[in-house]
Amino acid sequence: MADSKTDTPLPPPTHAQSIASPINLVLFALLLTLVYLRLRPKPPPTLSRAPPPIVFRTFTPPMLKPYNGENNMPVYLAVNGKVFDVSNGRNFYGPGGPYENFAGRDASRGLACGSFDEDMLTKDLEGPLDDLKGLGGEEWEAMRGWEERFQEKYLVVGKLVAVGDPEASKEG
């Protein structure tokens, strides 16, 4: 037997290098990479920061005016002394919408009377607020209805006071 072994040619290289053959090395490296990938500590998922809450403010009519949706401003409107952020309803209340006259203004009388006309708005922004005199019972009802709907749908981000009101001066 021993003689015959010396006679046979050398085994092919594949047999000799069976454990450290290139393919084994490749597979072994692959395995190591997988182990690393799996055991590597993963950071927990994080959410991007939520937008900060809007600060409740006291508005006077001139302060409210710029919030009409133009120049990337949010759309605010006031009903019965409450200022609503109606930016989500930009299509209605923003520029080009059917209610665009109300954007940045006191919309109480207009909503009460169901009219979008310019003359429903308080002309003198520096003057006192619309005291809503001369509204009938039905019109009050209509305005309250709008106020309630707004409260369900939109955020109250401030309140409206006349220029010169002591509360307005606090705001600075």
């Binding site: 594949t14 069976s18 053959s21 084994n24 597979l27």
Partner: peptide, 12 residues
């Protein structure tokens, strides 16, 4: 590469 296939390769 595949010529180097052996029992160890199968195990791996």
């Amino acid at each position: 590469l595949f010529a180097g296939w052996s029992i160890y390769t199968t195990l791996l």
